[in-house]
């Protein structure tokens, strides 16, 4: 075991994946010699050479288009989009090509070896275009998996599983925690399952569901509610698509209450999809309406970042409202 932050865990996973399989390639804007703007790809080019690790021009739809071509020919591209906010120029390639190739070729081939890494989320005073959480846009697109880790241990195991999964994966890294989240990480190769939520803490009164950087927010809110005698079951969804409805529904059947927290805006966010499924499957178990504590329905603000964020206080208040419905 070694102490690592999320960036070090991601970097460690990439080193292992590239050593393990010579078909793995890493490319994107500035990922080469300097290891990217966050240094997640440090020392990869030095170790694995410029054919396997290289800087691209400023061309997000190109990065994914090139990656689609490479993946369809057997390479294992790990393409980086420098910030989640820059993924929209590549939206067309991801939605119309990456996610569809297996289906539209009638199963002749896919680009399932492709992994797209991108830092997402706010809390770093990044303003409109360095803060967004675009997971729900991609959750609406059958054919691509979406994975979001909450800490270094999860980041390494889930990234290795994503790179080796036979489906394209959008791997979203919580940039607010890149250096802030530090933990013990095994130095050896290991994988964590995709499509499986994790019950982080068991409880009996309410289920709190989040992913990525919002996990520490719901944990903090749960501690506050605990002092008021509320026992929270805390779940990390980990995979947004496909998502683990069974684990969430089993928990709600026990607690009778559900709160979902995400940083993306409320309307059309992934919490809406979870809520729709849970009310369908657990209607008779519910003691109160499903609560959503999410980002504001505004562009991501700079000055109003504090108001925008679905923080632990908003979450605590929503827990108490749900408990006293």
């Amino acid at each position: 075991m070694a102490k690592m932050n999320i960036l070090q865990a991601v970097n460690n996973a990439l080193h292992i994946a590239m050593e393990d399989n010579e078909k793995v390639m890493v490319f994107g804007e500035d990922v080469g010699h300097f290891g990217g703007v966050f240094r997640a790809t440090s020392n990869l080019q030095e170790k694995f050479g410029r054919d396997r690790v290289f800087n691209t021009p400023l061309v997000e739809q190109g990065i994914i288009g090139f990656a689609n071509g490479l993946a369809s020919q057997g390479s294992v591209p790990v393409a980086e989009i420098q910030f989640g906010d820059y993924i929209f120029p590549a939206f067309d390639q991801i939605v119309n090509e990456t996610a569809k190739f297996r289906y539209r070729s009638g199963g002749q081939f896919s680009v399932g070896s492709l992994t797209i890494r991108t830092p997402y989320g706010g809390g770093i005073a990044g303003g409109h275009y360095h803060s967004q959480s675009p997971e729900a846009f991609f959750a609406h697109c059958p054919g691509i998996k979406i994975v979001i880790p909450r800490n270094p241990y999860q980041a390494k195991g889930l990234l290795l599983a994503s790179i080796r999964d036979d489906n394209p994966v959008l791997f979203m890294e919580p940039k607010r925690l890149y250096r802030a989240s530090v933990g013990e990480v095994p130095e050896e190769d290991y994988q964590l399952p995709l499509g499986k939520a994790e019950v982080v803490k068991e409880g009996s009164d309410i289920t709190l569901l989040a992913w990525g950087a919002q996990m520490e927010i719901i944990e903090k809110a749960a501690e506050m509610a605990e002092k008021d005698g509320v026992s929270s079951e805390i779940i990390d969804l980990r995979s947004i698509q496909p998502w683990d409805a069974d684990t969430i529904c089993q928990s709600v059947e026990k607690t009778g209450r559900l709160l979902i927290n995400h940083e993306a805006p409320l309307t059309g966010g992934f919490a809406a999809e979870v809520a729709a499924t849970v009310q369908e499957r657990c209607f008779l178990n519910l003691e109160s309406p499903i609560a959503r504590v999410c980002g504001l329905d505004t562009p991501y603000p700079l000055a109003h970042e504090k108001e925008y964020m679905p923080d632990h206080l908003k979450t605590y208040e929503a827990i108490m409202r749900t408990m006293h419905f």
Partner: peptide, 18 residues
Amino acid sequence: TAIVGNTIPIGVGLALSQ
């Protein structure tokens, strides 16, 4: 593909693999 231009970067990726 019916999205005009979409196969252009894919083709370039294919050429990179070659």
